[in-house]
Nucleic acid binder design. Structure first.
Length: 125
DNA sequence: AGCGTGACGAGTA
DNA sequence: ATACTCGCCACGC
C-alpha cells in the first residue's frame, strides 16, 4: 500500500463481497447456509447478490457450504461439492431408488445452519 | 433510457 | 418429482 492516494478497490474486495465471504467462512463443516439466508443475515442485498459474490469470489471461501435453498448441488461442480460433503459428513438425501443419473442432494432440514447453533445438535425430538 | 442475464426463492401447475 | 412464472436486484450491453 504505498501512497495514501491508492485506489480503494485495487487490492480489496468490495465491502459487500467481503461481508458475504466473512459469513460463509463462519459456516461450520458439515453445515450449509443458503444464499437467501446469508442475505437475510447480513440484512442487505438478496440471494442473487450473494450468488453474484460467490460467482466472482467464491474461491476465497468454503463455496460448497453456500447452497441453494432446494439443496441442489452447485451446477458445474457437483462432484467436487459432493466430495466435500462426504468429507464433512454433511447430511445428504440420496436419490430415489433407480435414479442413477441423479446425484444426491443436501438434506436441508438437517444441514441448514442458522448461524446460531454451534452444532450442538440435540435440540430436537 | 431499456433489455437480457444470473452460483436465487417462493409459489403454482 | 419436474416445469414454469414472477419478484427480486446488480451488471453489462
Amino acid at each position: 500500500m504505498g501512497t495514501m492516494s491508492e485506489h480503494p478497490t485495487a487490492d480489496a474486495l468490495p465491502e459487500y463481497a467481503e461481508r458475504v465471504l466473512d459469513v460463509a467462512d463462519l459456516i461450520p463443516p458439515g453445515r450449509v447456509m443458503t444464499y437467501g439466508d446469508i442475505a437475510e443475515w447480513l440484512g442487505d442485498g438478496g440471494p442473487r447478490q450473494v450468488g453474484r459474490v460467490m460467482t466472482l469470489y467464491g474461491g476465497a471461501a468454503p463455496w460448497w457450504r453456500v447452497v441453494r435453498s432446494d439443496g441442489a448441488l452447485l451446477p458445474g461442480h457437483e462432484l467436487r461439492a459432493l466430495d466435500h460433503y462426504r468429507e464433512e459428513s454433511t447430511p445428504l438425501r440420496e436419490a430415489s431408488r433407480g435414479a442413477e443419473g441423479h446425484l444426491p442432494r443436501l438434506d436441508m432440514r438437517r444441514a441448514r445452519w442458522d448461524g446460531v447453533t454451534g452444532g450442538g445438535g440435540g435440540a430436537h425430538t
